[in-house]
Measured scan of single mutants.
Amino acid sequence: NMECRVCGDKASGFHYGVHACEGCKGFFRRTIRMKLEYEKCERSCKIQKKNRNKCQYCRFQKCLALGMSHNAIRF
């Protein structure tokens, strides 16, 4: 039983190089595919399941810091 490295929810698998839940997987995919840019935040918000949708900037930064990558495809 793995935990999502981004928000701590139950991970659904290994997505983009990191154990992640469906919510964070979809969030990362949409951000990359649609080339979304979020308003910069300096607060280093703590991303948890209950508040993961509050600060998209910090959520995406955490995805990147954990090594999530669009190129991380498993063979």
Score class of each variant (00 low, 15 high):
Asn1Val: 09
Asn1Trp: 03
Asn1Met: 13
Asn1Thr: 12
Asn1Ile: 15
Met2Ala: 04
Met2Glu: 07
Met2Leu: 06
Met2Asp: 11
Met2His: 06
Glu3Ala: 08
Glu3Gly: 08
Glu3Cys: 06
Glu3Trp: 08
Glu3Leu: 09
Cys4Leu: 01
Arg5Leu: 12
Arg5Gly: 11
Cys7Gln: 03
Cys7Pro: 02
Gly8Cys: 03
Asp9Met: 05
Asp9Ala: 10
Lys10Phe: 06
Lys10Asn: 10
Lys10Trp: 08
Lys10Ile: 11
Ala11Lys: 04
Ala11Tyr: 06
Ala11Arg: 04
Ala11His: 07
Ala11Trp: 02
Ala11Asp: 07
Ala11Ile: 08
Ala11Gln: 04
Ser12Trp: 03
Ser12Glu: 09
Ser12Ile: 09
Gly13Pro: 05
Gly13Lys: 06
Gly13His: 04
Gly13Met: 05
Gly13Thr: 07
Gly13Glu: 06
Phe14Ile: 12
Phe14Ala: 11
Phe14Met: 11
Phe14Tyr: 13
His15Ser: 09
His15Ala: 09
His15Glu: 11
His15Cys: 11
Tyr16Pro: 04
Tyr16Thr: 06
Gly17His: 02
Gly17Phe: 03
Gly17Val: 03
Val18Asp: 05
Val18His: 02
Val18Glu: 05
Val18Tyr: 03
His19Gly: 08
His19Arg: 11
Ala20Val: 10
Ala20Arg: 02
Ala20Asn: 07
Ala20Trp: 04
Ala20Lys: 02
Ala20Cys: 15
Cys21Pro: 00
Cys21Glu: 01
Cys21Arg: 01
Cys21Thr: 01
Cys21Ile: 03
Glu22Met: 08
Glu22Pro: 06
Glu22Tyr: 05
Glu22Trp: 05
Gly23Glu: 15
Gly23Phe: 12
Cys24His: 09
Cys24Ser: 01
Cys24Gly: 00
Lys25Glu: 15
Gly26Val: 12
Phe27Ala: 00
Phe27Val: 00
Phe27Arg: 02
Phe28His: 00
Arg29Met: 13
Arg29Glu: 15
Arg29Asn: 14
Arg29Lys: 13
Arg30His: 10
Arg30Thr: 10
Arg30Glu: 14
Arg30Ser: 10
Arg30Trp: 09
Arg30Asn: 13
Arg30Met: 08
Arg30Asp: 13
Thr31Ala: 06
Thr31Ile: 04
Thr31Met: 04
Thr31Gly: 02
Ile32Cys: 07
Ile32Ala: 07
Ile32Asn: 03
Arg33Asn: 14
Arg33Met: 14
Arg33Trp: 09
Arg33Ser: 15
Arg33Lys: 13
Arg33Ala: 15
Lys35Trp: 04
Lys35Ser: 12
Lys35Gly: 13
Lys35Gln: 14
Leu36Glu: 09
Leu36Phe: 08
Leu36Gln: 07
Glu37Trp: 06
Glu37Val: 11
Glu37Cys: 12
Glu37Phe: 07
Glu37Thr: 09
Glu37Leu: 08
Tyr38Leu: 04
Tyr38Lys: 02
Tyr38Gln: 00
Tyr38Thr: 03
Tyr38Ile: 04
Tyr38Met: 03
Tyr38Pro: 02
Tyr38Glu: 01
Glu39Tyr: 04
Glu39Thr: 11
Glu39Pro: 14
Glu39Ser: 10
Glu39His: 06
Glu39Met: 08
Lys40Ile: 13
Lys40Ser: 07
Cys41Gly: 02
Cys41Lys: 00
Cys41Trp: 02
Cys41Ala: 00
Cys41Asn: 00
Glu42Pro: 07
Glu42His: 08
Glu42Ala: 08
Arg43Tyr: 15
Arg43Met: 11
Arg43Gly: 10
Arg43Ser: 11
Ser44Trp: 06
Ser44Glu: 15
Ser44Gly: 13
Cys45Ala: 01
Cys45Gly: 02
Cys45Phe: 03
Cys45His: 07
Lys46Ala: 12
Lys46Leu: 13
Lys46Asp: 15
Lys46Phe: 13
Lys46Ser: 12
Lys46Val: 13
Ile47Val: 12
Ile47Gln: 08
Ile47Cys: 04
Ile47Phe: 07
Lys49Ala: 12
Lys49Trp: 12
Lys50Cys: 08
Lys50Met: 13
Lys50Thr: 12
Lys50Ala: 13
Lys50Ile: 15
Lys50Tyr: 06
Asn51Glu: 13
Asn51Phe: 11
Asn51Ile: 12
Asn51Trp: 05
Arg52Val: 14
Arg52Ala: 14
Arg52Met: 10
Arg52Ile: 12
Arg52Ser: 12
Asn53Asp: 10
Asn53Lys: 09
Lys54Asn: 13
Lys54Arg: 09
Lys54Phe: 13
Lys54Gln: 12
Cys55Asp: 00
Cys55Lys: 03
Cys55Gly: 01
Cys55Ala: 01
Cys55His: 04
Gln56His: 15
Tyr57Met: 01
Tyr57Cys: 06
Tyr57Pro: 00
Tyr57His: 08
Tyr57Glu: 03
Tyr57Phe: 08
Tyr57Asp: 06
Cys58Asn: 00
Cys58Gln: 01
Cys58His: 12
Cys58Thr: 00
Cys58Phe: 00
Cys58Ser: 01
Cys58Ala: 02
Arg59Ser: 00
Arg59Tyr: 14
Arg59Asp: 05
Arg59Leu: 14
Phe60Pro: 01
Phe60Ser: 04
Phe60Asp: 03
Gln61Ser: 07
Gln61Trp: 02
Gln61Val: 07
Gln61Asn: 05
Gln61Cys: 03
Gln61Asp: 02
Lys62Gly: 03
Lys62Glu: 04
Cys63Ile: 03
Cys63Trp: 01
Cys63Ala: 03
Cys63Asp: 03
Leu64Cys: 08
Leu64Phe: 01
Leu64Ile: 11
Ala65Val: 10
Ala65Gln: 12
Leu66His: 05
Leu66Ile: 14
Leu66Trp: 03
Leu66Cys: 09
Gly67Tyr: 01
Gly67Ala: 05
Gly67Ile: 02
Gly67Lys: 05
Met68Asp: 02
Met68Ile: 02
Met68Val: 03
Met68Ser: 02
Ser69Asp: 15
Ser69Pro: 04
Ser69Asn: 09
Ser69Thr: 12
Ser69Gln: 14
His70Tyr: 08
His70Phe: 13
Asn71Trp: 05
Asn71Gly: 11
Asn71Lys: 09
Asn71Cys: 07
Asn71Met: 05
Ala72Cys: 09
Ala72Glu: 14
Ala72Asn: 10
Ile73Met: 15
Ile73Leu: 14
Ile73Tyr: 10
Ile73Thr: 15
Ile73Gln: 14
Arg74His: 14
Arg74Thr: 14
Arg74Ser: 14
Arg74Pro: 15
Arg74Lys: 14
Arg74Cys: 09
Arg74Tyr: 10
Arg74Leu: 12
